[in-house]
Amino acid sequence: MKKIAVIPARYQASRFPAKLMQDLCGQSVIVRTYQATLQTGLFDEVVVATDSDIIYKEVKNNGGTVIKSKREHHCGSDRIAEAVENSDADIVVNVQGDEPFTNKEDLEKLIGVFERDEQKEISLASLMHVMAKREDIENPNNVKVVTDMQNNAIYFSRSVIPFPRDLKILQPVYKHIGIYAFRKEALLDFYTQSPTPLEQSEKIECIRYLEHGKKIKMILTDHTSVGIDTPADLESARSTWKERYSAT
């Protein structure tokens, strides 16, 4: 089973333009993410896919593998699909460019989903963790997910789901961490499909898979993601980096 990791990297992010080129304690965010993914040793190949000459040069100048998208894309899955269209990969792992704290344990869990799925029923696997702070739960930048009893995704939303109608029932709220593993054929199916109504309403691309009947296995992790969507997130990431790595 050939496994590759692709890091989609847009320069003009809507909420925080040029965020991937921001300094994260001596290296850009995109280079930190690339290095963290490469250092897991899990992949036959790690590549950045970008629409930006600036990001292309940044990764190239730091010894990374990078390709320039030939088409304009509106979501990361499309950019990744173009990058692997002619690849012989079986499993494609999407590591978000603004997730520099990606770790080996979580990626191993995602890959393991497909190693155990002998009937090939699962199209995608992704990560989630429990959110504790009310301000995080109510923040629309944090995508929430609800699952069935087998941890297959039922729905994703920027709203609070499930809605706490009965406060006596302590139901955890899960944040979706934007790291995916795909069967290549499911990713290419997505590439040929038009955006779906709920996907467009929520601005969450993985909803398209659900609307087309694909099965998404969610994996619970204890690792808290430090995705970078705002300047405040960047400051938080810098503090986290210093705490984890300043002594090494």
Rank of each mutant, 00 (worst) to 15 (best):
D53M: 08
E205D: 15
S87V: 08
I177G: 04
D51P: 00
N139G: 04
F190I: 07
V145C: 09
A13T: 13
Q39R: 15
S28I: 01
L42G: 06
K120W: 01
Y34S: 01
D23L: 06
L38T: 03
V47N: 05
V130M: 08
S87H: 08
K109F: 08
K109Q: 14
Y174D: 00
K168R: 13
L210N: 05
E45P: 05
A232I: 04
E138A: 10
L167S: 14
D90Y: 11
A247W: 02
P195R: 14
A49N: 01
D229V: 05
Q39M: 10
G97Y: 04
N152I: 01
L187V: 08
D78T: 15
L124A: 06
E108P: 06
M131T: 07
E82W: 01
T65F: 15
Q35N: 14
E118N: 11
D53I: 05
R158I: 00
L124G: 09
V93H: 06
Q171M: 06
L20A: 12
F156W: 13
H74A: 09
D222A: 07
E185P: 09
V146W: 00
G41K: 08
A18Q: 10
R183D: 10
R71Y: 05
T230I: 02
C206R: 05
L198M: 14
E45L: 10
E235W: 02
T192H: 12
I216Y: 03
V46M: 12
F16I: 14
H74T: 15
K144W: 02
I169M: 03
G112H: 15
Y155A: 02
G213L: 04
E115P: 06
F156S: 00
G76V: 01
F182W: 02
R208G: 06
K184N: 09
A153M: 01
H212Y: 15
R134I: 07
L38H: 04
K217C: 07
F101S: 05
E58H: 08
N142T: 11
N151C: 11
Y180S: 06
E235L: 08
Q200M: 15
D98M: 03
E202K: 01
R165I: 05
